[in-house]
Amino acid sequence: MGNSWLRSLSPSSGNGSHKLICFPHAGGSAISFGPLTECTGSEYDVLAVQYPGRQDRRHEPLVDNIPDLVDGLLPELIATVEDAENFSLFGHSMGSVVAFEAGRRLEQESGATARVLFASGRRAPSSTHREQVHLLSDRELGDLLLRVGGTPSALLEDPEFRQIILSIVRNDYRAIETYRCDTDAMVKCPIVAIVGDRDPDASFAEIGAWSAHTSGSFFAKSFPGGHFFIDSNCRPVGQLIREHSSQALLS
């Protein structure tokens, strides 16, 4: 696959009438959206972004800032959506911001507008929180990953895997924690923001601020669970994707 950025997760790649392009969380990889793919339906061709420096791109250098991530992804993304009758973007955590910036660039540089931008588990892009997770010690960062979930504890107990995981996660936290966004930055497509009701990183009130970043409609919903609430709410999240994508087609 070389340095390709997109991975097809659908069993029948290219057969779906609606492309759903997914953007992983900090430390995450394309395969993290495998369960969600099974819950979206055959009409969706699910693609997921594979950031450099992990899994089959592990020999490529990590990218530690959002603008450069989007710069690298954009040519392949433009080529992909040019052939798509309909497409939506779905990001989780850090991926929500990458999806937002990718959506903005698509609109500006190719004129392509997503049907819906789904922002999951992340405060609005213009949030003024100033976090310093990327400056934690290895031990502190490892403890944080165990508390938040999403990383198998067995991998963190293996010294070799632990070091690889921590370097990737630290890099991605640096990218999202140094990211800055103007309050008037927006996309044209509707935004649907979702969050777990026990997510320590984002509250239902905080995701409401995503409404300022679209000139289209806005909808927010919470699900039971913590930061990785998608794992235990795969079917209802899949249903939400189908409902809002359908509504966007009719509008």
Rank of each mutant, 00 (worst) to 15 (best):
Q163L: 05
A119D: 00
A124Q: 06
L145S: 03
L141D: 08
F118I: 05
T151P: 03
P125V: 05
E109I: 00
T151R: 01
R139V: 03
T128S: 04
R123A: 15
R162K: 14
L144T: 10
L117N: 02
E140C: 01
S110Y: 00
L117K: 02
R115T: 01
T128N: 03
S120K: 06
S110V: 00
L166W: 05
F161R: 12
L135I: 06
D138K: 04
E157H: 09
T151M: 00
I165N: 10
E109D: 11
L117I: 06
H129N: 07
I164E: 15
L146G: 05
L136K: 14
A124P: 14
E131R: 12
R123K: 15
I164N: 07
I164V: 11
S137Y: 02
D158S: 02
L135D: 15
L135V: 11
P125A: 14
A124V: 02
L166I: 10
Q163P: 07
L146A: 10
T128A: 03
L146N: 12
S126A: 09
E107H: 00
V169W: 15
A112T: 09
G111T: 07
S110Q: 01
S126E: 00
R147C: 00
D158T: 05
E131F: 03
L136F: 08
S120P: 13
D158P: 01
A112E: 11
E131N: 04
V169E: 10
G142C: 06
D158Y: 01
A112S: 15
T113N: 14
A119T: 01
H134K: 13
I168F: 12
L136S: 08
P152C: 15
A119L: 00
G111L: 05
A124R: 09
D143I: 09
Q132P: 06
S120C: 08
D143W: 12
A119M: 01
E140W: 05
A119N: 01
S127L: 08
L145M: 04
Q108E: 12
R122E: 10
P152Y: 14
S153K: 15
L135A: 09
A154T: 07
S153A: 14
Q163E: 14
A114M: 01
A112D: 08
G142E: 07
S167R: 14
L155R: 07
L135T: 12
P152I: 13
E131Q: 05
I165H: 11
V169M: 14
L144V: 07
D143C: 04
A112M: 06
F161T: 08
S120Q: 10
G111W: 04
S127Y: 10
P152L: 07
L144D: 04
R115P: 03
P125L: 05
Q108T: 07
Q108N: 08
L135M: 15
S120V: 09
R115F: 00
S137P: 00
F118G: 01
S137D: 02
P125I: 05
L155H: 13
T113K: 15
Q132G: 10
F161G: 13
V169L: 13
G121A: 11
V116Y: 01
V133L: 11
G149N: 03
I164K: 11
Q108K: 08
D158C: 05
V133I: 11
G111H: 08
A124C: 15
T113L: 13
